[in-house]
Amino acid sequence: MTQSSTYPATPHGVLNTGVNTGKLGMWVFLASEIMFFTALIGSYIVLRLGADSWPVPGDYLAVPVLAVNTFVLITSSVTMVKAVQAFDAGDNDRSARLLLLTALLGCVFLTIKLWDYNHMIHNEFKINTNLLGSIYYFLTGFHGLHVLGGVISLLVIRSGVKSGKLLGGQHFRVEGVGLYWHFVDLIWIVLFAILCLV
């Protein structure tokens, strides 16, 4: 007997909350992720308020490039929404195409990010240059790792959608990756605003 047949998605058919178990798990996990980024952003606020002086972010950061990157990530959230809609409508091919597009936009974001790091390190702005550098690399680095995790999840879920193995009953898997992707997108918008604009 294989594991998957021993463990149905909802044992004994129980769903006490009425919310799909996988979806509930993703929300619970995201609550935890929010606390992680809250700690990072909170530390940034404390360090910045406690500093004697703070450099002008624009002197060090390539703000216009990062603004373009923000646009890329927001666009990817739109394609993600469309992918979930297409999957719900039973159009697996369209959904798979949109998931691939979302993953590609994630890759574009990461590529621009790496170019940005490379450019700044070339200009002698490194993680140990000053507190702004430490915080910038640390926060955006952790966010970048989350984007990478999202791209991998998107590609995995896409192959399931494309091959037709994921059916309507497993809707939450596509939706779950979507929730995570929107969360990563949202975190970036906050990071962009507080790191580059204020």
């Binding site: 935890s32 606390m35 992680f36 700690a39 530390s43 360090l47 993680i127 140990n128 430490s134 640390f138």
Partner: peptide
Amino acid sequence: PVVAAALFMMFMDRTAGTAF
């Protein structure tokens, strides 16, 4: 996650020359 953030910051202080 909060202590994880603090541990990672301290790890950077020890290895990457930051000063969180």
